[in-house]
Design a protein around this nucleic acid. Structure first.
Length: 497
RNA sequence: GGGCCGCUAGCUCAACUGGCAGAGCAACGGACUCUUAAUCCGUUGGUUCCAGGUUCGAGUCCUGGGCGGCUCACCA
């Protein structure tokens, strides 16, 4: 829908703009005067009943969008909304002047932006209201907003025109406000623990740090294929080599894979690396960070999610990958020791195993099928098979297993962490093994990154690192059924305009 | 990629078995000085997602396509 093919209502509103101009009223002035945020006024005076005190509080200059408008002859009510809240406005023709009342206010529409200055009082029903003395049109809407009572329900429109969703649907506004608090809370928490925030390339020559298909792009001047990062991991560990013992990066990653209610091609991850720590430290850190975020932001460690109530209060359940397979997945014990038994069992579950080129991968599939959906309350699954964890450090007592955990909540992976593999020789062998799997057709196998191995040769201290899917965490905090509900502009096919 | 469902006015939704495309809100004109889904009177508004087909007649049935949702597959 471009402005060329506008409908009748839009045309009428454009004409209204012209009539304002003809009357010498600028519908899009350059400046507004604001003395207070609406939310601040509400919190300061919502408890004050004394009319005299309200009147003596003085003049408030507020600005925002008109979200409702009720004319009653020579008096009118409206609600004005800014980011912090909304407040009722009361206009009287004898207060704001006949000129403004007749020529401007009466011609205004729900959705217009208005600057209003006046004093506080309470209406007969007790609502804190601004008695307007003076007002100014700040921006004229020329396209009607979604219906006031039912809001905007069409999911496609809500995603494509998120601004309308935000105007019309409070749940959506609240969700993204919570998202902002979660992001800020993560930054604050990690900073308070001595982590520094860094930025590493999102365009990489060798994409690494995860098993995923990358997006490809091209740099003209260098005539170079570049990949959008699938994870910042390998760069962050280079920084630990460089002496930044505690680093984190919070930002977008890109994976060229399917879209679903829990996958968006670009998504937000926070990764952090902590020298002289191991994966046990990070389990505690995760518990503390997420539970304190829930308490600070939502006021409770228990949060509703769909049909469940998730309790983030630590300690969280911990169970080894191997034990989870047998006790939660009811897989026979022999699958752990025998690749053949694992394949047989997987076939029974109708899992195709032909493309799975290692024992660990088969176990991973069995895990995804039988265990993951049952992990509702926060649960750490720890000690993963080495062949699906090419960047994690082996357990000294069992080289088939690495010191790695994943956090699951509501049947979904939220975080992935491990004690980092810092032996350069072993890392090279692991990457070479990944290359062989790539040759066998696994497009998501890791690539050999010689520069990364060289960095390890300069010495990576014992280090633990973790990545948390921020979008999925926000889904849990906001009871959102789809990742699209917590991403402002989710990836969609283009259509219409 | 498969299956199922959806797409009708700016928005939210109706329209029986194929028979004049409708309501509320919004918009436009008017009344109204404490309303809050304000109220009252009047008016206007349609490429029924697109392209074909069947039919005297298609929003409705058929074929193809588009976009979206859910789900399965894929995705450590």
């Amino acid at each position: 829908m471009t402005s060329e093919e506008t409908n009748r209502i839009v045309k009428e509103l454009y004409q209204k703009v012209e009539r304002f101009r003809e009357a010498g009223i600028e519908p899009y002035p350059n400046r507004a005067q604001v003395s207070h945020l609406i939310g601040d006024v509400l919190s300061a005076y919502s408890e004050v009943e004394d009319e005299e005190r309200l009147a003596q509080a003085g003049e408030f200059k507020l600005a925002g969008r008109i979200v409702s408008l009720r004319f009653h002859g020579r008096a009118s009510f409206a609600h004005l909304r800014d980011m912090s809240g909304q407040i009722q406005l009361y206009f009287r023709e004898d207060k704001v002047g006949r000129e403004f009342y007749r020529k401007i206010l009466k011609k205004m529409d729900v959705g217009d932006f208005l600057g209003a200055s006046g004093t506080l009082f309470r209406t007969r029903t007790g609502e804190l209201t601004l008695q307007v003395n003076e007002a100014k049109l700040l921006s004229k809407i020329v396209r009607p907003l979604p219906e006031k009572w039912h809001g905007l329900k069409d999911k496609e429109l809500r995603y494509r025109q998120r601004y309308l969703d935000l105007i019309a649907n409070k749940e959506s506004r609240d969700r993204f406000l919570i998202r902002a608090k979660v992001v800020q809370g993560i930054r604050n928490y990690l900073s308070s623990k001595g982590f520094i925030e860094v930025e590493t390339p999102t365009m990489q020559v060798i994409p690494g740090g995860a098993a995923a298909k990358p997006f490809v792009t091209h740099h003209n001047a260098l005539d170079l294929e570049l990949y959008l990062r699938i994870a910042p991991e390998l760069y962050l560990k280079r920084l630990v080599v460089g002496g930044f013992d505690r680093v984190f990066e919070l930002g977008k990653c890109y994976r060229n894979e399917g879209i679903s209610s829990e996958h968006n091609p670009e998504f937000t991850m926070v990764e952090f690396y902590m020298a002289y720590a191991d994966y046990n430290t990070l389990m505690e850190l995760s518990e503390e960070m997420v539970s304190s975020l829930a308490k600070e932001i939502l006021g409770d460690s228990k949060v509703p999610y769909g049909e469940y109530e998730i309790d983030f209060a630590p300690p969280w359940k911990r169970i080894s990958f191997k034990d989870a397979l047998t006790s939660i997945g009811n897989a026979p014990e022999e699958v752990w020791d025998s690749e053949e038994a694992a394949r047989r069992f997987a076939e029974e579950l109708e899992i195709e195993t032909e493309h799975l080129h290692s024992h660990g991968k088969v176990l991973g599939e069995i895990f995804d099928e039988l265990v993951e959906p049952n992990l509702i309350q926060p649960t750490f699954i720890y000690d993963y098979p080495v062949d699906i964890s090419p960047l994690a450090k082996s357990k000294p007592e069992d080289p088939k297993v690495v010191e790695r955990f994943e956090l699951f909540v509501a049947g979904r992976e939220i975080a992935n962490a491990y004690t980092e593999l810092n032996d350069p020789k072993e890392q090279r062998q692991r990457m070479l093994q990944q290359l062989r799997e790539r040759d066998l057709g696994d497009e998501e196998a890791q690539r050999l990154d010689e520069d990364y191995i060289r960095a390890l040769e300069y010495g990576l201290p014992p280090t633990a690192g973790e990545g948390i899917g921020v979008d999925r965490l926000v889904m849990l905090f906001t009871n959102a059924p789809s990742i699209r509900d917590v991403i402002l502009f989710p990836t969609l096919r283009p259509q219409g305009g």
